[in-house]
């Protein structure tokens, strides 16, 4: 019963081809030798010209990439702390008793609802809300406003992933550590956190991707010197013929495939080692 017909394979291949079609076009045109106004619509021959000065300061792509990377780094780092703590605090909450009292517990529940809201509402709403808020607070737009806004939508990804993982953990493990004399903090840091770490990492990776790719919110809260990569791409694409964009995309694609491939390789190796040790034990 649980078996695909050959047509299922054909269908999946077709969808994947469509998924990669625009990406392949961009890769192809990154090697276009046509430098003219039709550079992005007529392929004339092979050339590496768009790669040669891709990160020349004059193009601004290098700076935009650095901006995006550092915004993503700080946002994810801070979100990982806030979101993981939140998940530990709210996973398997006692239903009746709360140290914070009834009102405190209700406020915390409201806080949780608000924390996951950013991934459910259209980004443009938050973009405008942040822009209005930062204007009212007379903050200057730049790195700080970008990181503060990115944290808002990075936290839910980490929070939900980690909380989900904590819910599946056996509470007995931590209780055993406590019964054997570990302090609550020690039980948390030596038992629960290591078990939740894979979820923290996968939540962070997801949040990092979302931060790097965010256009709408960054569009409203960026400053004059903090153009991020998506913003830079948007302005070049909007203005006209930006063949550099194609080269940039190709470089990013290669980097992503490399990282994903490495991840798979490491995972496969860890799996093999685990199987080996299981075999050695028996």
């Amino acid at each position: 019963m649980k078996k695909n017909s050959p047509w299922a394979g054909v269908y999946m291949a077709l969808v994947l081809v469509l998924l990669y079609l625009p990406i392949l076009v961009v890769v192809l045109f990154s090697f276009n030798s046509n430098p003219g106004r039709t550079a992005n619509f007529q392929f004339e021959g092979f050339s590496m010209q768009w790669y040669e000065n891709l990160f020349d300061p004059i193009t601004g792509y290098g700076q935009a990439l650095m901006n995006s990377l550092s915004i993503a780094f700080w946002s994810v780092l801070l979100s990982a702390v806030i979101g993981t703590l939140g998940a530990i605090g709210l996973a398997r909450r006692p239903v009746r008793k709360s140290v914070l009292g009834k009102a405190g517990a209700a406020a915390l529940s409201l806080g949780e609802q608000l924390a996951v809201l950013p991934i459910m509402i259209p980004e443009i709403i938050l973009g405008i809300a942040f822009m209005a808020l930062f204007t009212a607070l007379k903050m200057s737009f730049g790195m700080v406003t970008l990181v503060l806004s990115h944290i808002t939508f990075c936290v839910p990804y980490i929070f939900i992933t980690v909380k989900g993982r904590l819910a599946t953990l056996d509470p007995g493990l931590e209780e055993a550590a406590r019964d054997l004399g570990a302090s609550p903090l020690r039980a948390l840091t030596t038992v629960t956190l290591p078990l939740a770490l894979p979820a923290v990492i996968s939540g962070c990776l997801l949040a990092f991707a979302m931060s790097m790719d965010d256009f709408v919110i960054s569009f409203f809260v960026n400053g004059p010197t903090t153009t991020t990569l998506p913003l830079k791409v948007y302005s070049s694409v909007k203005v006209g013929v930006p063949p550099h964009v194609n080269a940039l995309c190709t470089v990013m694609l290669v980097a992503v495939f490399f990282l994903v491939g490495m991840g798979q390789l490491l995972q496969a190796r860890a799996e093999r080692r685990r199987l080996k040790s299981v075999k050695a034990d028996s």
């Binding site: 939140g86 605090g89 709210l90 709360s98 915390l108 409201l110 806080g111 808002t152």
Partner: peptide, 19 residues
């Protein structure tokens, strides 16, 4: 586990402020 709820306070405060 009960006392841990307090660890979620930073997230709740952040969300209350920014969202």
């Amino acid at each position: 586990v009960h006392r841990r709820e307090a660890m979620a306070i930073p997230m709740a405060v952040y969300a209350a402020l920014f969202v």
